[in-house]
């Protein structure tokens, strides 16, 4: 059953805020690593692990490296939930 995209963004908000320790982050489709302080490759791995746990899904290595922005990420989550 596919999740509603809005629900996914709502659920992503606290994960992003927690991961980057910044309560002002808002998950938008355009948001990308360059926009967020501390979003380096390691933080990216951390974020993916958190998302995998929160949504109970699993990303393949090629997916993990293909996300260009939060929109891509939400799209992939939607396809898996």
């Amino acid at each position: 059953m596919a999740s509603d995209t809005d629900t996914i963004f709502l659920k992503l908000n606290p994960i992003l805020q927690e991961c980057f320790d910044d309560d002002d982050i808002i998950a938008t489709p355009e948001l990308q690593a360059n926009d967020v302080e501390g979003w380096d490759s390691l933080a990216h791995v951390r974020l993916i692990l958190h998302i995998e746990r929160a949504f109970k899904i699993h990303f393949s290595a090629s997916e993990v490296t293909s996300f260009k922005n939060v929109g891509d990420l939400a799209h992939a989550i939607k396809a898996k939930t």
Binding site: L42, V45, I48, L49, R53, H58, S60, A61, V64
Partner: peptide, 14 residues
């Protein structure tokens, strides 16, 4: 194996 391949995590982050 996925986490090792992705980030060389020696064991599952769980």
């Amino acid at each position: 194996p996925a986490q090792w391949n992705m980030a060389k995590l020696p064991f599952s982050a769980t």
